[in-house]
Design a protein around this nucleic acid. Sequence first.
DNA 1: GATGAATGAGACTTCATTCAT
DNA 2: TATGAATGAAGTCTCATTCAT
Lengths: 186, 186, 186, 186
Amino acid sequence: MTKRQQIIDTTIQLVAEMGLYATSMGLIVKESNVAAGTIYHYFKNKEDLIKTVYSELREEMGKAFIQNIDNALPYKEKFFLIWKNLFYYFKDNPQKFQFIEHYASSPLEKNEVKEINQRHYQPAINFIQKGIEKGYLRTLPESFIIQLIFAHVSVVVRMILFDETDISVTTLQLLIQSCWDSVRIN
Amino acid sequence: MTKRQQIIDTTIQLVAEMGLYATSMGLIVKESNVAAGTIYHYFKNKEDLIKTVYSELREEMGKAFIQNIDNALPYKEKFFLIWKNLFYYFKDNPQKFQFIEHYASSPLEKNEVKEINQRHYQPAINFIQKGIEKGYLRTLPESFIIQLIFAHVSVVVRMILFDETDISVTTLQLLIQSCWDSVRIN
Amino acid sequence: MTKRQQIIDTTIQLVAEMGLYATSMGLIVKESNVAAGTIYHYFKNKEDLIKTVYSELREEMGKAFIQNIDNALPYKEKFFLIWKNLFYYFKDNPQKFQFIEHYASSPLEKNEVKEINQRHYQPAINFIQKGIEKGYLRTLPESFIIQLIFAHVSVVVRMILFDETDISVTTLQLLIQSCWDSVRIN
Amino acid sequence: MTKRQQIIDTTIQLVAEMGLYATSMGLIVKESNVAAGTIYHYFKNKEDLIKTVYSELREEMGKAFIQNIDNALPYKEKFFLIWKNLFYYFKDNPQKFQFIEHYASSPLEKNEVKEINQRHYQPAINFIQKGIEKGYLRTLPESFIIQLIFAHVSVVVRMILFDETDISVTTLQLLIQSCWDSVRIN
DNA sequence: GATGAATGAGACTTCATTCAT
DNA sequence: TATGAATGAAGTCTCATTCAT
């Protein structure tokens, strides 16, 4: 594994466990078996490191949730599949989920990166847009609907992760239905 | 106003604007017109200050959202009123909303305060419990339903606050309906 | 007990246990049931408090070690009695002993108090002086001999206090003999 | 000279002059021409710095006082030589002597370092042990005898250092004799 | 006499970052 | 590329002391 990747992996892990601010560069140095200077060889500074990691995760996530979606399927089924994709991506990568949550709620989020990462959203935006146009979804701002879905999934993931319980396929189906009911046309 | 209150008010304002970590004790000192030592007269340390502020806000919030609820009203109407109470409490106190969001996503949240503040939830838990029993709401864990509603309101509030737009009463009604649809029995 | 005495007692106890610097005024306040301002009513500042306590202890100690000395006794016997007086004063008042040790090794000792407290030494100086004149003791500076005796007793007391053992009368006699042998004429 | 050594030297000098507590890290920074962070690169914290310095001095002292002792010499002569070694080590390194005195009387001393540094005592313990076995010294606990000798030397050194007088070789011989008389078999 | 809220200088320490090797 | 010693600004907190009540 390259030094750069070691740094990124350690950063994800530490931020997930301790949060953005408790994750000092010194700690990353210690845990990643890399010298302080090396980090600054690959990243301009701490903010750049964090933002880069976030960017990469967003891209990965963006790919994950549209994966294996057959366009021929009915809209509702695609919705359910997408929800599941997102859910399992988070469930199977709890540290990445937590990193993203930490980042999203940090003051860093306020900056320009928002737009930069927007493009990873594009397929999602398109999907929602089409849902509204075709009369499957309520007439609400797309970004709002996306936030709603994202928030919904996050609540479910958080519940599972922190309660350390698992969830049956049936229950999961109920939960997705709940999300679907909040955005679909009655 | 007492020194203690000055400190608390300044803390809410600064944390709302800059986040938990960018809000240094030095900044609080400067903005609150209080000596450094005075803060430590009222609070054990920064963590204690933050947690105390959070606790007080949670209590206030707990009171706000069950306010003016006539028990004689139909369940659904009560649900809508509670949603609105919560919504307007956040909308009218944006700094308190942001403080709570910052706190909730911080590593501090992980600690014991969670339980301590649980009692402010009690009316909410009871309300949800009754809704499930009477067959108005889906059979899901109460705490999960509460999280879902909370997340839903938060998304709406965030949208309004950050987009700096306002929202018509009609739209609001639609949004509450969306939340209701995600938890009500079909 | 007067507030003043409460302060002094608490100070002795805390300094004995924790040392001069770990004994903060705040700690004295907490442990002595006295308000911060009250301490400053009786003492000019921390240094004054410590020095006053020390002065009082020195006076007490000065009285203790010449107590019950019959001038008619042989010189050597008087020496043994004085040694014992000093020893038992320390053994029976371990906190006072420790306070004195902490003070004596502190930078405060360097100041003027040394002379002020000199007068409590006077009987000791006289006793040593007479011993030299009469040919019982070696011709060395009196203050040096006093330091030697004081150091000797302190070593014994420290040993007993920290090892938490006690000591037989016979052993004690041997120890005094050791001290006596270091200053008597051969 | 390395940064680490600069820090240690400055620490010895400042503690000797001002005591353990008046020697702030800030002062060490100023006097040693080193950045604050650099101290924490070499030492975990102030306590660690002080303890490390003390440890090194104890080792140096341990080497100093058994230096040039010819085992073939008579016991008493070896005793005199050892006393002199210790005496001159302190007299020639007054700041180290004062550092050790400050440390020894501080609350830090109470901790584990005591044992760690015990091994530097080993030659001394052996020497005393042999003295008792061979009938040269009184039957008293070795550690007690060591404390006695140490206290004796310290009184002499303190006298010379603080009175700023020097001492003739004859007088010195008298003083060692006094120490010897306090521990030798009559 | 007694109280304790309020002060602010200064103590210790952390941490992102640089730079010579 | 990679290292890690060195930096110093800034953060948190303590503590002796004051003063209005």
